[in-house]
Amino acid sequence: MPRMTLDLRLPDGPFAREFVGVGVGIDVHNDQPDWRRLLRERLPFDFFEVYTRGLVAGAHEVRAAAGDLPLLYHDDDLDPIVPGAPSEASLAAARENLAAVGAPWCVSELATRRLGARYLDFFQPILLTDEAARVAADNLSRIDAALPGRIVAENPPYQLPVGPLHVLEVMARAIDLADVPCVLDLGHLYSFQLCRGLPPLAGLDDFPLERVVELHVAGAELDRRWGPALYRDAHGAADIAPEVLEMLGEVAPRCPNLRAVTIEVEEATVGRVKDQLRQTRAAVRPLLERRRPARARS
């Protein structure tokens, strides 16, 4: 059973104590969707999760335009699975962006785009070993201590799992050791289960769901051209798989400290954003209806 009483030390603000609702993850550099238009059209989202690629000007711009809309921040440069990461420059950028957005936490996937001096064209997800979990925990602890908010670890997408453990085992070890909250990206979890031929929620019963403050869903494509199904994390450029929406409906009520459900909509048309908001809100309707009126923006 998840422990309700775990103190996640979330900074004061809208996400500190209650479920805020369903938000959208935006890339400030994207023309599609243009986040300003999403604001103007008053679509039924409760917050933005902001992805700036490290450029703090974008963080300031969203903060200034968003009024009292709550914001979260998603980083992609901390590389918390690489021994010795992050660099001081990456940490400084995350600190600056997090402060500019005014978010209570910074989401970072347990993955890297960089090995030594080499930039990778694709995320390499955490290896599924004890050692990888320990290294990630050590890095997460240092990052957490250095940020003005919490670091929140996210399970990465998989096309090729390497190592004997289940991703939820590795993630649980890392976040328990580091004592940090986490995001469960349900599409990413589905990608892993596909690789191992497991049911969508396999491994979840032993996972510390009390550490989950946020759930992610996003569009994806399954590429079967070469035989095995390869999950391509397409975000707003594709539909959310029905399996992932079903997972959301089952997992969300089991996370006692859940604060946010984020749809990552980069590259989506406004029409698709609307569709995905409708689908996602329907999947977590009981949680939305239980919110106190003051919190229910949408």
């Binding site: 190592g163 690789c195 095995p228």
Partner: peptide, 16 residues
């Protein structure tokens, strides 16, 4: 560790 890699999947991922 590397023995846990599914060779068919590796080939598919490499091509994609």
């Amino acid at each position: 560790v590397l023995a846990t890699i599914d060779a068919r999947r590796l080939d598919a991922v490499a091509r994609m």
